[in-house]
Nucleic acid binder design. Structure first.
Lengths: 130, 130
DNA sequence: TTGATATATTCCGATATCAGAATATATTGA
DNA sequence: TCAATATATTCTGATATCGGAATATATCAA
């Protein structure tokens, strides 16, 4: 087994900066775009645009509809919800950063006698799932 | 040039499911964990855990501190902020989905005469940056 | 039908990943 | 110093990526 495919996930798909750029462009425009318009807008070779669009399509991040000899692509942002929900679980970890640093210091102080702090700690009440 | 490295970004680093799992575990525990504890908890071979931790460390998603012959790892969630901010820009695109579908239908109706709808559309007021 | 346009696909080479196995590098303790 | 423990690193093989170039497919228009 090697690396998991870019078409597995929204996570995998958006790991590529150019694909994020495409999504950004589609969002900015707010309506369907044909491929050549994207090619002009982004300034990349057409096959490259098509290939990245193919990945985004397979993951469901964009929708396509044929219109004559054009293919009109549009953003399907709902697929980003998975990513949003995942990362949102961590929001509390960077909010009130100073408070949390203080809290951790206190916890470590308390557990200084224990040899392995984490063992006694147990799952906290803030528990993102992977 | 090939694919961009997993150590480039938080985006690239979290593309791997097992790394998300590690982050989730660290968050759940809420305190520093040594590697062997993670090995037990996750049930993966030790080198695999160490290697994934190394990627997370290089991207700044975890912090390490040496404690005797142990290395205590802890979550550094602030690095996820980039991802959060990025994906949050798209939130409006899946909220009020029905309203937006209606709006798009109307826009398309209006622009039916124009040959290339998107050209006349221009950037919408909702404009995520890539 | 022929040609032009729009887009997708295939082939290539360089590269980076990931898991697994083996091994190396500390650090502690006797 | 020597053994044990904790963790990191290296090597290997299979694989998937990405960009670039070339080519294929499909549709429209004359």
């Amino acid at each position: 087994m090697a690396r998991s495919a870019t078409t597995t996930d929204a996570f995998a798909a958006i790991a590529e900066p150019r694909r994020r750029e495409i999504l950004g462009t589609l969002a900015r425009v707010g309506s369907e775009c044909d491929v050549n318009w994207l090619v002009d807008e982004l300034g990349w070779p057409q096959p490259q645009v098509s290939k990245h669009l193919a990945v985004l399509r397979q993951v469901g991040l964009v929708s396509v509809v044929r219109k004559g000899r054009q293919r009109m692509y549009s953003l399907n942002a709902s697929e980003l919800r998975t990513v949003f929900d995942w990362v949102k679980q961590y929001e509390k970890f960077w909010e009130h950063q100073l408070d949390r640093i203080k809290a951790r210091a206190e916890r470590m102080q308390r557990e200084r006698t224990s040899n392995q702090p984490h063992r006694g700690a147990g799952p906290s009440s803030q528990a993102p799932s992977d």
